[in-house]
Design a binder for these strands. Structure first.
Ligand code: FES
Ligand code: FES
Lengths: 135, 135
DNA sequence: CATTAATGATACTATTTTAGTATCATTAAT
DNA sequence: ATTAATGATACTAAAATAGTATCATTAATG
């Protein structure tokens, strides 16, 4: 069962790379070319995912010559669950079984409540995995 | 983000139906037709999933006239996680990010360890959701 | 101010996975 | 022998994922 999509995966690697190279005091504006050369990822694909991160205010982007991307949030404020949400939507287990007949009173449904709880704790745990914690 | 596939979903509903009708003391061999009529599910699809459950020793099956399926395991011994595993494979979060460069020593990888732990507790929780608990 | 090198936006194609169907073989009751 | 069920497997359709192509916009810089 696949839990993490390619976008999420590549993105996390790119973010770790960006964080580590800006930590080293190097320039913190990095181009897509630099990232994909370093990590061996498909360029056009990566461009699209980084653009999305910029729209979500995780990165800033700079157009034109000498442009590129830089971290907008700090590495400790970007967690795995943020990235999963952006590319894969909310982690929500309650989408759910037994519709209709078996469970007519959705609001009272005990299964739903339990799944919700499980989902919440999963979110919480994944939220602790930040880019900073991977450096 | 979809966590539960159609097979898993339909199957859980079918199992709850089967468990509840055998609980009522009614006959416990039930045909696919009865299940899909009751729950409004696609028949041929359902046949295939129930056959798979039989192969996995969750159901027994009886061929021929008057045949059908019955629960082999008791409702309290069938959990959501069992069914997810059958149709969707293991719930495994460690498939994982940062291959190659960033994380050369796979065995020592702290991220991997943390994801593994999270996956284990998720499994544990989903394991508590049994068919019996949904009756 | 033209050139160059970057991202922004969006449409397109290919691949893989999921969902669902069709069919024939086998089995057991009557 | 007939009928009504599952077993096995191949097939098709639809949706999601992965990846590409292209043109527009922007900013540096000689
Ligand atoms: S099981 Fe789905 S609403 Fe209760
Ligand atoms: S992050 Fe994948 S092995 Fe460590």
């Amino acid at each position: 069962m696949k839990f993490i999509s390619r976008d999420t995966d590549y993105t996390m690697r790119a973010l770790v790379f960006m964080a580590s190279s800006s930590k080293k005091g190097a320039k913190h504006v990095i181009t897509v070319d630099e990232i994909v050369d370093e990590l061996g990822l498909p360029k056009i694909f990566m461009r699209r995912t980084l653009q999305k991160l910029a729209r979500h205010k995780i990165l800033s982007s700079y157009k034109g010559k000498e442009g590129g991307f830089s971290l907008l949030k700090s590495a400790s404020q970007i967690s795995l669950v943020d990235i999963i949400k952006i590319f894969q939507g909310n982690i929500d287990l309650t989408n759910c079984l037994l519709r209709g007949k078996v469970c007519p009173e959705v609001k009272k449904c005990p299964l739903r409540k339990r799944l919700k709880k499980i989902g919440q704790s999963l979110n919480k745990e994944l939220n602790k995995i930040t880019v900073a914690s991977l450096l």
